[in-house]
């Protein structure tokens, strides 16, 4: 965290986030800062609490304890919808698209363009299609002429483009990508990472959860290592390497400076599902 102390106030600041499921702690006092225009990678073994942390940030799960500040203001989202209204978007690993609806419908789902006729709100499909085409020309030009196809007829990479288009359609502040490269071919991974850089250049702040450390090293400014629901280390990517990150993920930092995660014998034996 010292690495970021000389910067302006963070866009997102999560402090002391705890999440308890019954007797199991998924998070035990986690901190996270995200600055404007920054790409932060979150890494950790299964059960480290990465997904729980971003689910709390995007409003899908309420924290048991802890505080989230957005632009310095405390926020407590009761639903993903509220988080989206405040400019926090997430692209889920399963993409959360509806296969039997077309590309445009999925991109605008829940935030349709409408126009009033005799006081009744009607869908403004033409306007939504124009905007979808414009989005796709930036994201995935192959989809530009396929916006009327149902998403179930698209490839995995194209579906991800639809999910990302939905996330960036309304100029969010923060975009969370949960394991975005897990289901992609090598070639598509390169395209996705290029896109992340482009969005970062446009000022978007991005959180990237990934098991693929080479992806993290390629596009992230900082990497946050988690283990058993706690922060192990918050590192500038330029000052570390894959070897150190792996060592921190495995040891929880004990072998290094003895900071970060609580002693392992205090951790619950069962990891959250």
């Amino acid at each position: 965290m010292t690495a970021t102390s000389n910067r302006p106030a963070p866009l997102v600041r999560m402090r002391g986030i705890k999440k308890q499921y019954g007797q199991v702690y998924a998070l035990r006092g986690m901190n996270l800062d995200l600055y404007q225009g920054e790409v932060v990678g979150i890494v950790g073994d299964n059960g480290a609490g990465k997904s729980t942390l971003v689910k709390i940030l995007c409003g899908a799960v309420p924290p048991t304890e802890g505080e989230t500040l957005l632009d310095g203001e405390p926020v407590a989202f009761r639903s993903p919808h509220e988080a989206r209204l405040m400019g926090i978007e997430i692209v889920y690993q399963d993409l959360a698209v509806i296969g039997q609806l077309n590309v445009t419908r999925n991109v605008f789902l829940g935030r349709e363009e409408t126009r009033r006729i005799l006081g009744v709100r009607f869908l403004d499909t033409r306007k939504m299609e124009q905007r979808t085409r414009a989005l796709m020309s930036r994201l995935d030009p192959g989809l530009e002429e396929r916006i009327r196809l149902n998403v179930e007829n698209l490839s995995g990479g194209q579906r991800q483009s639809v999910a990302i288009a939905r996330a960036i359609a309304f100029d969010p502040k923060v975009m969370i990508l949960d394991e975005p490269t897990a289901a992609l071919s090598v070639e598509k991974v390169e395209l996705l990472l290029a896109l992340v850089r482009k969005l970062k250049a446009a000022g978007l702040s991005i959180i990237l959860i990934s098991h693929r450390l080479q992806d993290i090293m390629t596009v992230c400014d900082r990497v946050v290592v988690m283990k058993r629901g706690s922060l192990v280390r918050d590192l500038e990517v330029s000052t570390t390497d894959v070897g150190e990150i792996v060592r921190l993920m495995v040891t929880g930092g004990d072998a290094a400076a003895g900071t970060g995660a609580p002693p392992l014998h205090l951790a619950p034996t069962s990891a959250p599902a």
Partner: peptide, 12 residues
């Protein structure tokens, strides 16, 4: 009808 799970996630 297409996916209640997704409909909930997008806040319908």
């Amino acid at each position: 009808g297409g996916s209640e799970h997704v409909a909930r996630l997008v806040g319908l």
